[in-house]
């Protein structure tokens, strides 16, 4: 009886092995890199991962992409498992402060962990992301130059969210450097419904308070939704002919469409998601080659989107 019980177990094991073997493709020779993220279902993350995988394939790495389907706690567990497996490097796409336990486990085992637009943390080798400072400066300067360094500007900001707060602060500095540019209003829209609707309402109020053509020269928004809302308000008020310049940041599809249409919404900034993935892979390969990376954050260039390239 014992013998046949064992045989049953062996049978199960063989069966599962066949299933798993087919799915896994176990390879040990090349460098093994794990990508752990709870957000694989989100489009941005998919672009990062695609870019990373493409670069990894060129390097001949064995990449294991692990999706914990929104479960941040499981990210820690899976990092622990990767530490157990002694992989060569781990890439994360989640706030590092939430997974300190996992980062510590990797650090204790001497496994480098890289952030892919994750936020910085002392336990990360580096975090690869877009430069929020540069993006804000670029659009703010675009606005200032378009209005010839003079006129009233309406700003849409959101200081409660640190990455966006940075953008507003930089834009403040840029506008402050032009003596003839006045910030007419610094608006924080209600974002619970996405931000477009409330920004439009706020902009309508500002338009009503400033009925004179030319009294508003530009709208600078810290992200695309308020820019779209402002555009709607201006068009609804029939004041699209006054040459009010609008800019956003992120260049989401709706913003690109508005920019391509050639109206008041003139510019936004596109992040290079694939590039973030490629640059992360580059950072990994440098560390695997023995190089030390000193920058806690590595920036990937962004691209200004105007009507000239909005449809690309």
């Amino acid at each position: 009886m014992k013998f046949s019980m064992l045989r049953g177990i062996a049978g199960r094991a063989l069966l599962s092995m066949a299933v798993l073997g087919a799915a896994a493709g176990i390879a040990q020779a090349e460098s093994r890199v794990a990508v752990v993220t709870p957000y694989l279902a989100q489009p941005g993350t998919q672009f990062y991962v695609e870019g990373f995988e493409a670069a990894a394939a060129e390097n001949g790495w064995d990449v294991n992409v692990i999706d914990t389907k929104g479960d941040v706690g499981a990210v820690i567990s899976r990092i622990e498992d990767m530490v157990t497996q002694n992989v060569d490097a781990i890439v994360i796409n989640v706030d590092p402060q939430q997974i300190t336990a996992g980062l510590q486990a990797a650090a204790d085992a001497g496994i480098p962990v890289f952030g892919m637009d994750s936020g910085s943390d002392p336990l990360l080798v580096t975090n690869v992301t877009s430069n929020g400072y540069a993006m804000a400066a670029e659009t703010a300067v675009y606005v200032a130059n378009r209005i010839g360094g003079t006129g009233n500007v309406v700003m849409f900001v959101f200081d409660a969210f640190p990455p966006v707060q940075v953008r507003g602060h930089i834009a403040d500095a840029v506008f402050g450097n032009f003596p003839d540019v006045d910030v007419l209003d610094r608006v924080t829209p209600d974002v619970t419904d996405g931000g477009i609707a409330d920004s439009r309402a706020k902009m309508e109020a500002i338009l009503a308070a400033n009925p004179e053509p030319g009294s508003i020269a530009a709208v600078w928004a810290a992200w695309d939704q308020p820019a779209l809302g402002a555009l709607q308000a201006i068009e609804a008020a029939g004041r699209e002919g006054e040459g009010i310049v609008i800019t956003g940041i992120d260049a989401n599809p709706q913003a690109r469409e508005a920019i391509a249409a050639g109206g008041n919404f003139e510019a936004s900034i596109a992040q290079d998601f694939q590039g973030i993935g490629r640059t992360t892979a580059d950072a990994v390969s440098r560390v695997l080659a023995g190089e030390e990376i000193k920058q806690g954050v590595m920036y990937v260039p962004t691209k200004l989107i105007t009507s000239a390239n909005a449809s690309d």
């Binding site: 799915a23 176990i26 389907k69 567990s77 498992d81 990767m82 497996q85």
Partner: peptide
């Protein structure tokens, strides 16, 4: 299962 399959690099959906 979670631990072992992750270590074996099996797709988490499997």
């Amino acid at each position: 299962l979670d631990n072992g399959l992750t270590q074996m690099s099996v797709d988490s959906y499997i």
